[in-house]
Design a protein around this nucleic acid. Structure first.
Lengths: 234, 234
DNA sequence: CAAAATGATGAATTGTCTTCATTAAGATTG
DNA sequence: CAATCTTAATGAAGACAATTCATCATTTTG
């Protein structure tokens, strides 16, 4: 009748439902396009709201991303302790932590990219909920190392934090090409290699003993047994 | 006199000079504000050109950043081999590589941030000149390891690339807080610690075992088995 | 010194995040 | 069951930054 634009039918949903809708839409759009290349208009459309509505529930685009990643992270960590509790032995537990990280990267490269590139690099990262979750996540690794030290298996003169940095740094460095969309990697194999390297280091072990010494040979056999016993519980 | 906007005096410089001016301006603005928060208008102003002029010499904002980082990277690598040639021994040379990396991060955190966050994560990174320079840069590390292996100092059963990932991954992971503007680190100390950890690994060395008799060593191995069995029942 | 070449301009375009006054669905009340 | 209230949702407008391009001005060339 008049020149006024027709307003489409307005559906009023509960706050919880709207937030869930927007976050689901945001996750899928972010996953497809990354952060910069994901226009809020796409998210709004997929969530069946108008752009402005997003600002009723989220401070800004970045806040939306933070909430999305936080949500994803929480669901990931949910069954973590349970899985870990079924694994025995320092080496196996350490390997699990590395493997779990690699597996996550392998399964959700896009969300990991967002986490690594956009979230973790922000000035406000340590005020973020994700920061706290991440601390929880890596705390387990520190605990495992500590247990290993207490059990006399690991050196007691290393910085725990440095070991953690080595594990996660190596793991992530190893997956960058994949995260850029170049090539692939096998989480199982890579986890084995990293765990082995972290534990043993580069330096050659007593070359004069190798293969000849009786005790060394028996110890190696026991090491294999240990690994076998641990693997069964995983 | 008329309402036409007065055009300021136009200075025509050589292409080389203009490009240099713009890149210098861009480097300083990027260093101060990062990538997203650096408006092209700031760069243009500091370079004494108008925004549009930048597009005569650079494809777009990202291209400008790539060129800026490339330029910086090249100047850094210039005296690299000379420095390295003065250092002998696998451990020292490896430590130098780690230290150099840490030192760079310590001195130019802002530019490193741009490199790590913006450049290296882009889809086009492996087509970038910086990618090639970076390969050159880390190639030395691989060579050092290889030399160590050939000299019989290092294990010959490790993946070179994995070792490289471990070194650089650990180094960078260690410096993230600093790169976010939180806290500080000492390049010398950190380099020592990382070199030591990479070389020796986590596993405990048992110098005391070397002279111990066979029976004792077997007993210790069995003790470990017993502990393992105990863990599973507990 | 006229003509050609090209460095440089700045206005216009485009795309996106963000704000906000207004509208109306649904709950509450008498 | 109408009047009123609350607040979810809208959509237009603002702000800002990257990018394009027709035009202008300076320098070089013949």
């Amino acid at each position: 009748m008049s020149n006024r634009t027709e307003r489409r039918q307005v559906f009023r949903l509960s706050k919880e439902r709207r937030v869930a809708d927007i976050m689901a839409a945001a996750r899928s759009v972010f996953r497809e396009k990354g952060y910069e290349d994901a226009p809020l208009s796409d998210i709004a459309e997929r969530a069946n709201v108008v752009e402005g509505s997003i600002y009723r529930y989220f401070e800004n685009k970045r806040d939306l991303l933070v909430k999305v990643i936080e949500d994803w992270y929480e669901s990931m960590l949910a069954d973590y302790d349970e899985q870990l509790s079924g694994i025995k032995g320092t080496r196996n537990r350490l390997r699990f932590m590395i493997w779990r990280h690699l597996k996550t990267i392998h399964e959700e490269p896009a969300l990991c990219n967002l986490m690594f590139q956009v979230l973790r690099t922000g000035r406000d990262y340590s005020q973020t909920g994700v920061y706290g979750l991440n601390r929880q996540y890596t705390r387990r690794t520190l605990d495992i190392i500590k247990e290993g030290i207490d059990a006399g298996e690991l050196r007691d003169d290393v910085s725990l934090r440095l070991v953690r940095d080595m594990i996660y740094g190596c793991t992530e460095h190893r997956t960058w090409a994949y995260l850029r969309g170049e090539g692939d990697f096998d989480p199982d194999q890579t986890a084995d290699a990293i765990a082995e390297l972290v534990l043993s280091g580069l330096r050659k072990r007593r070359p004069e003993d190798a293969g000849t010494d009786v005790a060394t040979r028996i110890e190696k056999a026991v090491e294999r047994l240990e690994r076998l016993a641990g693997d069964k519980t995983g």
